[in-house]
Amino acid sequence: MEAFNLFVSNHIIEIYVLLLAIFLGFELISRVPTVLHTPLMSGTNAISGVVTLGGVILVRSADSADYLALGLGSLSIVLGMINVVGGYAVTDRMLKMFKKEKK
């Protein structure tokens, strides 16, 4: 119980942020036309590439002689970057095709 109380009071901001973010995510997606389901899925998929930031912080903090951490950290950056670059580019290509309606 003590540990739980300590955890909650130390992380109360994070808990608020988490709950509000969940709420925001739900709200943002309600009422989307089917036309945009695929681009939306692909666009949010690109956002999950934020995991790259973690890779960057990991590699920066790693000891420059610790090749295992450097190697795996760089691998996570490569994978994350493919997700970011590919995800945004593919979404952009899809959306380019939605031209203005013809009069």
């Binding site: 988490l18 973010a21 969940i22 739900f26 943002l28 997606i29 949010t44 999950s48 934020v50």
Partner: peptide, 13 residues
């Protein structure tokens, strides 16, 4: 927050 946004919106979708 970015991850949670994707998680939540993905769930709704």
């Amino acid at each position: 927050i970015g991850g949670i946004l994707v998680g939540a919106s993905g769930t709704i979708l």
